[in-house]
Design a protein around this nucleic acid. Structure first.
Lengths: 151, 151
DNA sequence: TGTTATTATATGAAAAGGCATATTTTTATA
DNA sequence: TATAAAAATATGCCTTTTCATATAATAACA
């Protein structure tokens, strides 16, 4: 079954749900991601810092899962953030294979600014989409996640 | 305003719409993207081939926009696909700055197989999400795209 | 029409990511 | 409790992307 709510089109992708999801994510994020870069960070760094905020620390593996990248990539991103002084690594006490990653003081200050900008952007975005429609969207996205093998 | 439909959480990202969008896209795509790789392609190649199918040819710039990557990356992806014999490049007749990209016969056969697998996967995904909920989702995603500066 | 701006694509160097695998530590089992 | 298996992270190599910029062609304009 092709999506009945989409106009028929010669182009396959115009009726392809995974493309629509990727496009919506990309388009919605583009503006803020530019702001992240203007502030001197790349999106990977931003995601790690954002994931750490309020988490009480995460392991490399947890960060990889949360940030939607593979583990070796996360090891390298964390290494870069350590060199920038934004996070610190510490071997887990109970299981020394694990490496706990936490925000440093500077990392905390940095992410607070970024999060503040992200929240401001999100307010504008929700206003543009419409608050009611946003709630519908959020529910639908949770359902996708839940039913796609991550529930 | 934070999203009211999400439980309050210490972690910023749990209430962050752009993260939810990225996560839904990633989770929903993961399974099929693995199949693409098993078939010997990477996601970038798949996206270009899928974008070309039924398009009547696209320029490098158009492909970059459609495939959500920047132009130099697309020039290089196209170059690789040319070397693999899946697409062909031709300078545009009316504007010789433009480079038109088309599927070759082999590219057509290849993408037909991939699209067939994508459609089968999509059927299963829609079944898992629920057809009615999928329609709601599709409408919401179109709205996001439309209201995020791409309308 | 000659000159300047703009647009489309390509290229080169550096950064980041992906994949296989090594290393270290913990868990399971004989 | 040795030993084997599993788990978490790191590392090396190679591919891909990114960023800045070069090149080529068209458009604008004086």
């Amino acid at each position: 079954m092709m999506l009945r709510t989409m106009a028929d089109s010669a182009r396959f992708i115009d009726g392809y749900l995974l493309y629509l999801l990727a496009r919506a994510s990309s388009v919605a994020s583009a503006e803020f991601h530019e702001e992240v870069r203007r502030r001197g960070f790349n999106v990977s760094n931003w995601r790690v810092l954002a994931a750490l905020k309020g988490s009480g620390g995460q392991t490399v593996g947890e960060l990889a899962a949360v940030c939607l990248v593979n583990q070796p990539a996360m090891s390298k991103t964390v290494e870069r953030l350590v060199r920038q002084g934004l996070v610190e690594r510490r071997a887990d006490v109970g299981d020394r294979r694990r490496v706990n990653v936490n925000l440093t003081g500077e990392g905390e200050r940095t992410v607070d600014e970024l999060i503040s900008a992200a929240k401001a952007h999100q307010e504008r975005l929700i206003e543009a989409i419409g608050p009611r429609e946003t709630e519908t969207l959020v529910a639908a996205l949770h359902r996708v996640i839940e039913r796609s093998g991550e529930g």
